[in-house]
Simulated assay, not measured.
Amino acid sequence: MSRSWSRRPRQRYVPPRPRSLWRRLVDYALTVIVLGLLVVLAARLDRIETRRTAGAAVINDGDTITLGTERIRMRGIDAPEYSQICRKDGADYPCGKLARQSLVRLISGKPVSCTGWQRDRYGRLLGDCKAGDKDLNRAQVEAGWAVAYGDFETEEAAARSGKAGIWAGTFDEPHDWRESHDRQAVERKHGTLASIGDALREIFRF
């Protein structure tokens, strides 16, 4: 019994054509550009390097403290301004001063440490702050003496439901109060999208 085998015709080997001088120059130029961008990126990563500061805190108001020479705006929250007035049971009360007192109680004289890399339009470090193991940003919102401002929405909802702090009465949102009383430009929230935008701006800022 015979078998017939079909053979495919062998394809002729065609060596690749050498790249033209122009193509090689373009490839070299693109390589140099990519390497240059990587060098620039590495040199600018220090702009978004997390900074840490610690020490005895001077409490300025319900969301701002000073550690040494570093003034820190607590990230993701917004407390009533020190001179802000709110209403409860038909009467005005100094909610801004009470917000500061709340932060004083939370710190209780302990050393405070804050970390962050962003800065607000006043040059203050946007920091996540702790006194011991206590997360001060979160605790201020939980106590009802600050509203969520890009973070801590769950904690704000619980404080509002429990009528804690300023939620026991009526108040102007702190950023609205600033705009109407001090004619300040509205400060943008400190959320994730803002952080990404700040990082890109810092990396590509010349």
Rank of each mutant, 00 (worst) to 15 (best):
residue 105 R to L: 06
residue 27 D to E: 13
residue 193 L to M: 15
residue 34 V to K: 04
residue 37 L to W: 15
residue 75 R to S: 13
residue 203 I to G: 02
residue 51 R to K: 11
residue 129 C to V: 12
residue 181 H to N: 07
residue 71 R to G: 10
residue 17 R to A: 12
residue 57 A to I: 01
residue 174 P to H: 10
residue 81 E to Y: 05
residue 138 R to K: 15
residue 192 T to M: 07
residue 94 P to H: 08
residue 91 A to T: 13
residue 203 I to V: 03
residue 39 V to C: 07
residue 31 T to S: 13
residue 50 T to V: 04
residue 76 G to E: 04
residue 51 R to L: 08
residue 33 I to M: 15
residue 76 G to H: 10
residue 154 T to Y: 08
residue 186 V to G: 03
residue 140 Q to Y: 09
residue 81 E to I: 11
residue 22 W to P: 06
residue 164 A to P: 10
residue 168 A to P: 10
residue 163 K to G: 12
residue 135 D to R: 14
residue 97 K to C: 04
residue 31 T to R: 15
residue 53 T to D: 00
residue 88 K to L: 13
residue 202 E to W: 08
residue 5 W to S: 02
residue 72 I to A: 07
residue 151 D to V: 06
residue 69 T to H: 14
residue 203 I to H: 08
residue 38 L to T: 14
residue 127 G to Q: 00
residue 124 R to C: 11
residue 53 T to G: 06
residue 99 A to Q: 05
residue 57 A to V: 03
residue 194 A to N: 11
residue 143 A to S: 14
residue 107 I to V: 14
residue 157 A to G: 00
residue 87 R to W: 11
residue 35 L to E: 11
residue 89 D to L: 09
residue 203 I to F: 07
residue 200 L to M: 12
residue 172 D to W: 07
residue 160 R to C: 00
residue 10 R to I: 15
residue 54 A to C: 00
residue 131 A to Y: 05
residue 37 L to E: 11
residue 18 P to C: 09
residue 189 K to N: 12
residue 77 I to E: 00
residue 128 D to P: 14
residue 124 R to F: 02
residue 70 E to H: 05
residue 160 R to Q: 04
residue 204 F to N: 04
residue 198 D to V: 01
residue 58 V to N: 07
residue 131 A to S: 03
residue 104 V to Q: 01
residue 89 D to R: 08
residue 14 V to G: 04
residue 167 W to A: 02
residue 124 R to G: 01
residue 59 I to Q: 06
residue 189 K to V: 06
residue 57 A to F: 01
residue 197 G to Q: 12
residue 146 A to S: 10
residue 78 D to M: 04
residue 143 A to Q: 06
residue 155 E to F: 00
residue 10 R to E: 05
residue 197 G to L: 14
residue 170 T to W: 12
residue 100 R to N: 02
residue 173 E to C: 13
residue 106 L to H: 00
residue 163 K to Y: 10
residue 172 D to A: 11
residue 191 G to V: 10
residue 84 Q to I: 01
residue 188 R to I: 15
residue 14 V to E: 12
residue 24 R to L: 10
residue 60 N to E: 10
residue 73 R to N: 05
residue 196 I to G: 13
residue 129 C to T: 02
residue 50 T to Y: 13
residue 93 Y to N: 09
residue 147 V to G: 03
residue 89 D to A: 15
residue 19 R to C: 11
residue 147 V to T: 00
residue 132 G to H: 03
residue 12 R to M: 15
residue 193 L to W: 15
residue 56 A to S: 08
residue 168 A to K: 06
residue 19 R to N: 09
residue 173 E to G: 13
residue 36 G to F: 03
residue 158 A to M: 11
residue 79 A to Q: 00
residue 166 I to P: 09
residue 109 G to V: 08
residue 64 T to P: 01
residue 193 L to T: 13
residue 38 L to D: 11
residue 67 L to A: 00
residue 166 I to L: 07
residue 133 D to W: 14
residue 54 A to K: 09
residue 203 I to R: 05
residue 61 D to V: 02
residue 20 S to Y: 00
residue 41 L to R: 08
residue 32 V to E: 08
residue 34 V to Q: 02
residue 138 R to M: 12
residue 83 S to M: 13
residue 125 L to G: 04
residue 6 S to N: 10
residue 112 V to G: 05
residue 9 P to A: 11
residue 169 G to A: 03
residue 152 F to A: 01
residue 16 P to H: 10
residue 199 A to E: 02
residue 113 S to C: 12
residue 99 A to L: 01
